[in-house]
Amino acid sequence: MHLSSALQLCLLASALPAHAATSWGFSDATVSVQTKGAGVGAGLKEQIDSSKPLANPVSLGDADTLKLTLTAEEGNTAKRPHQAFLLLKDGSGLDISFPLSVKDNGKARLELTQKDLPLQFLAASEPIDANLVIGSFGSAGAYNGPAFQLAVERNADEPLPSSTAERYGQLPEIHHIFRSDARSPPVVITLAFVAMALASLPVLAGLWLFLGANLNHLPAAFKTAPIPHAVFVGALVALEGIFFLYYTSWNLFQMLPPALAVGAVAFVSGSRALSEVQGRRLAGLR
């Protein structure tokens, strides 16, 4: 019986083109997850069919061990393949394969824990695709099919060691944050206070008039010493005018010479004018 089927296979192989002879596959594949400390047979255990993958993702916690066993077959004969890998892939194009330890009769097994997985898979939010890859040299076609999805369950409180490897690339943009500009109060309030400041002048004038201030001696003063009084008062007003120009446009060197000149004029004319004032006091007029 065995011999005749082998003979048939040989005949088939010689009749068909080389690559279509046989192909690799597997049978009796089971995946189980055992939690450390839990009893035997406690965790998940499922059969894998080579035609379609498991519907639900297999979850792997940090104390769990995933066990995969299968029997590799070439055609329908159990045989030892050169390559029997569990291939894990994520969406970003990262892949890693874990070789199954295979016996001569094709029985293969693999134990996988979270320690074996690369960091990127531990951080993955989506389940990882797990494929079974079985192949060998020669003409038999290799098998690469999805087996299940692996969901890595992590304790969210334990931080992952971050990978800080430097890669050349674009860096985040930086825009300087300027200090805020100096601000003024609303103009209405400012104007109210300006009005108050300027109102002090009429208040002062009104108060003086109420107390009897007057300019009655002005004609007499100008009659006695017209030039000193005119020049003195004019010099005082001119000095304020010079200060105004200094405030708006002049610099110190433009301001000092006229200020000194006007000051000298005020000193000379002021002494004459004040002599006249003294004369009025001595005459008992003030």
Binding site: S200, L211, A221, L236, V237, E240, L285
Partner: peptide, 20 residues
């Protein structure tokens, strides 16, 4: 400027005011 104006007014009053 209110102070400056007040100063000039004061000078004028001091120079030319008759006692009340």
């Amino acid at each position: 400027w209110a102070v400056i104006g007040g100063f000039i007014a004061f000078v004028l009053v001091w120079l030319y005011s008759e006692p009340p």
